[in-house]
């Protein structure tokens, strides 16, 4: 076994809460979220950046938490799926995803919802192609993507802006 470099202290904010944590260098943000903070809404389906299930938003941008070192998250603002609904009120994206049947087994859902949220924040009226480019890294086996796309289209026709 390789010798250990000790844990290092980091401060980061997850869903608006500040945390101080001591982590070993090889620990990923995904592991911090799931194991230390017990925010298990962020999923691992491959661990190698090929499925999008572990997507979280860092400073509003979608990133793969399985390929992000915890030590690289010092002082960053991280939003996970648990931080989206405020006080139990679902966001519009979340509501429409449910209404349109865009959730089945739900394992890809957190990543897809966060990537969609980030897209709609960055681009108020994304084209079909832009939607697909934003979600091309998110594998979903259950829905065939039809109802996911339908839900996003509905959010757009509602003229809803994600910035609130």
């Amino acid at each position: 076994m390789k010798k250990k470099q000790g844990r290092q202290l980091i401060e980061l904010a997850v869903n608006g809460e500040a945390y101080e944590l001591a982590e070993e260098p090889q620990v990923t943000l995904l592991e911090v979220l799931r194991n230390d903070l017990e925010l298990t809404g962020t999923k691992e389906s491959c661990g190698t950046g090929e499925c999008g299930a572990c997507t979280v938003l860092i400073d509003g941008e979608p990133v793969l938490s399985c390929l992000t070192l915890a030590l690289d998250c010092r002082d960053l603002d991280i939003l996970t799926i648990e931080g989206l609904a405020k006080g139990g009120d679902l966001t519009h994206v979340q509501e429409i995803f449910l209404e349109r049947g865009a959730v089945q087994c739900g394992f890809c859902t957190p990543g897809v919802v966060l990537a969609t949220t980030a897209l709609l924040k960055a681009t108020s009226r994304p084209t079909d192609y832009e939607i697909k480019k934003a979600l091309e890294g998110h594998l979903c086996r259950c829905t065939g993507y039809n109802k996911i796309v339908e839900a996003i289209d509905k959010v757009l026709t509602d003229g809803y802006l994600v910035n609130e």
């Binding site: 799931r34 017990e38 925010l39 298990t40 809404g41 962020t42 999923k43 691992e44 996970t80 799926i81 648990e82 989206l84 609904a85 679902l90 979340q94 995803f97 449910l98 209404e99 049947g101 959730v103 739900g106 394992f107 859902t109 957190p110 919802v113």
Partner: peptide, 23 residues
């Protein structure tokens, strides 16, 4: 009827616990 799935709110908020999430 097009009734929304019961587990929807759990899943859409990341609250749903899968076996993978259990400790």
């Amino acid at each position: 009827k097009r009734i929304l799935r019961k587990d929807g709110p759990d899943k859409i908020t990341g609250r749903a616990k899968y076996t993978m999430d259990m400790r």
